[in-house]
Amino acid sequence: MNDWLNLTTLVIATLAGLAVVGVIALVVHRSIRNLMLRLNKLEAMRSDFVANVSHEVKTPVSAIKAAVETIQADPAMPREDAERFTKIIARQADRLSAIVDDLLSLARIEQHAGEIYAELQSEPVVSVIEAACETCQAHAQEKKITLNHSCDPALKAPINAPLLEQATVNLIVNAIKYSSEGTTVEVCARPRGREVLIEVTDEGRGIEPEHLPRLFERFYRTDKARSRALGGTGLGLSIVKHVAEAHGGRVSVESEVGRGSMFCIHLLADDPTAK
């Protein structure tokens, strides 16, 4: 009888041990699988990023190369033609420089996001709004666009002022770029619940609904040819997103084709009870 009990106990213990081992193996297998899926996703993202950068850089480099070769092939080229080609070189060089600057900005924000969040200071948001609008005023005047801004001077939020100004400038530049002459761009900062919102509203052509979920991705464009023609790098909105996230916030967009768009940076309110 004792031998039977001992054998039964041994079998049960063995089965229990095998069950535990099986559960551990299953958990480890799933963890490894999830890890591999994540690594594969990261690798795919890295590959896409490299491909996008290569594509964006190739266009201005090709234009510069073609212009230089044309000048070299005709030493007796009339002055007017030579000046036209040197302007092409200068314009494309500026485009390359803008791409590099935006890539460096993204890299710095991503690398130091935690430090940025830890060092946020409660400051008036109005100073950021005013500085951003001042930076963009000349560009707005060139297109005969009215640039208005509004913000309660008492409104404060934990911010990194230079970074937030850069993000706001990016939104205003985009609004001006895709708006028609004689329209208005409104920049407004206001409290809402536990957030402070910075809204940039334009009267442009609007954005189709299918594009809205991807607008803040790197190099994503709704109209690639038009965006490049207007001088965009395809990184401006991605920088806005990363700046917002470094503040512990987020971004959003609302748009209606033919009516315009409103881009918004959501920040944490300085006073959690703000309404």
Results as ranks from 00 to 15, higher is better:
Glu254Leu: 14
Ala244Ser: 03
Tyr178Cys: 05
Lys65His: 11
Glu123Gln: 13
Thr59Met: 14
Val173Thr: 06
Lys65Met: 11
Ile32Arg: 15
Val100Arg: 13
Asn34His: 15
Leu155Lys: 03
His149Tyr: 12
Arg95Ser: 10
Lys87Met: 15
Ala157Leu: 07
Gly231Tyr: 08
Pro60Glu: 03
Met77Ile: 15
Leu35Pro: 02
Ile145Asn: 00
Asn40Pro: 02
Glu210Gly: 03
Leu37Pro: 05
Ala66Thr: 14
Glu43Phe: 03
Asn170Trp: 07
Gln121Ala: 15
Leu212Met: 09
Ser252Thr: 05
Thr183Ile: 06
Gln111Gly: 12
Phe49Trp: 11
Ala63Ser: 12
Thr86Pro: 05
Phe49Asn: 12
Thr135Gly: 00
Cys151Asp: 03
Ile99Gly: 03
Val126Tyr: 07
Val126Leu: 08
Leu15Gln: 08
Gly236Asp: 03
Thr86Phe: 11
Ile71Val: 15
Tyr117Glu: 14
Lys275Leu: 15
Arg38Ile: 07
Thr184Lys: 12
Glu256His: 10
Pro124Gln: 08
Leu212Thr: 01
Gly22Cys: 10
Val27Asp: 06
Pro162Val: 08
Ala67Gln: 01
Gly234Phe: 02
Ala66Ser: 13
Glu181Tyr: 07
Ala269His: 03
His29Tyr: 15
Gly22Trp: 14
Ile198Gly: 00
Asp270Phe: 05
Val126Ser: 11
Glu56Gly: 00
Ser150Asn: 12
Val68Leu: 14
Ile176Asn: 02
Met45Asp: 15
Arg214His: 14
Ile71Tyr: 01
Ala19Arg: 12
Asp202Lys: 06
Ile176Lys: 03
Leu164Cys: 04
Glu181Phe: 10
Leu35Arg: 15
His266Gln: 07
Gln111Ser: 14
Arg205Phe: 12
Ile145His: 02
Glu123Tyr: 03
Ala132Glu: 02
Met77Tyr: 01
Ile89Pro: 03
Ala154Met: 08
Arg194Phe: 05
Glu199Asp: 13
Ser179Pro: 04
Cys264Trp: 05
Lys241Trp: 10
Ala82Gln: 04
Leu15Cys: 09
Tyr117Trp: 07
Arg46Pro: 04
Thr168Cys: 08
Val257Lys: 07
His242Cys: 02
Glu245Val: 09
Arg79Lys: 11
Gln111Val: 10
Val200Phe: 09
Asn6Ala: 09
Tyr178Leu: 07
Arg192Met: 11
Asp101Asn: 12
Thr14Val: 13
Leu268Asn: 06
Ile159Lys: 00
Ala118Ser: 14
Thr86Glu: 05
Arg259Glu: 07
Gly22Glu: 10
Lys143Cys: 10
Ile198Lys: 01
Asp271Lys: 10
Asp223Ile: 06
Pro124Arg: 05
Ser261Arg: 01
Glu130Cys: 06
Glu56Tyr: 08
Phe49Val: 02
Leu103His: 07
Lys275Val: 10
His112Arg: 11
Lys177Arg: 15
Ile176Gly: 00
Arg250Phe: 09
Ala107Thr: 15
Ser261Gln: 06
Leu96His: 04
Pro78Tyr: 03
His266Val: 06
Leu267Thr: 01
Gly260Arg: 05
Glu210Trp: 05
Arg91His: 09
